[in-house]
């Protein structure tokens, strides 16, 4: 554990909780992509199956349970409790275009051919692109609520901080996992356009709207 990894985890946690609180407080999930949330639920489920097979630390297990619970809680709020507020007309990204190629890639580029390892690798690849339906939705509606922007910024920052963590671990522990590193870089690059808009607009008190 190092400061980059911890900041990344806390940023990730903040993002997930921010989204839950936003939906709960406003009683609405307008502007949120249910498809991205479905993909994140698949990501956490396939990655954290190791909750049952290996124990790393109380911290790790606790965070995994929180991420899983929050993810399914978000799905429940979006698709059941506040379903009428879900803006499905603008959430039109075809997620099979992400699910299938990630699955195929996880059979091609994987460290070890075991079920757990392939599922873990799949979760890494799918996570890298899971935000695309949400970014697509923002581009289609041309705007995002400020709280949604904060959510996206925290979620994007998490993998960027993990990149710093991997650089740090490479020099201090000789730790190198090219699968997570490349996928993490792809994931972070997808947010770059949004980061630019966030810094130039939202941080100056303006609403995020596309030109």
């Amino acid at each position: 554990m190092n400061i980059f990894r911890l900041s990344g985890d806390l940023s990730h946690l903040l993002a997930i909780l921010l989204l839950l609180v936003k939906i709960w407080k406003t009683r609405s999930c307008a502007g949120i992509s249910g498809k991205s949330q479905i993909l994140f639920a698949i990501v956490y489920t396939t990655r954290y199956l190791d909750l049952f097979t290996s124990f790393v630390s109380v911290y790790n297990s606790f965070m995994k349970v929180v991420f899983l619970t929050a993810s399914y809680g978000t799905l429940y709020l979006m698709f059941f409790k506040f379903k009428p507020t879900y803006d499905h007309n603008h959430d039109s990204f075809r997620i099979l275009y992400l699910i299938i190629p990630s699955l195929v890639l996880s059979f091609i580029i994987v460290h070890v051919y075991t079920v757990m390892e392939i599922l873990w690798t799949y979760s890494i690849y799918l996570e890298a692109v899971a935000i695309m339906p949400q970014l697509f939705m923002v581009s289609r509606t041309g705007e995002a609520e400020t709280i949604t922007s904060h959510y996206l910024f925290a979620l994007g920052s998490y993998r960027a901080l993990y990149i710093l963590n991997w650089i740090y671990r490479y020099y201090t522990e000789d730790f190198l996992d090219m699968i997570v590193i490349i996928a993490g870089i792809v994931q972070t690059i997808l947010y770059c356009d949004f980061f630019y808009l966030y810094i130039t607009k939202v941080l100056k008190g303006k609403r995020l709207s596309l030109p």
Binding site: R5, D9, D50, V56, S57, N60, K64, F67, D174
Partner: peptide, 10 residues
């Protein structure tokens, strides 16, 4: 090469 067989990250 990779040394990450125990997945200690989230």
């Amino acid at each position: 090469y990779q040394k990450n067989n125990q997945k200690d990250e989230l």
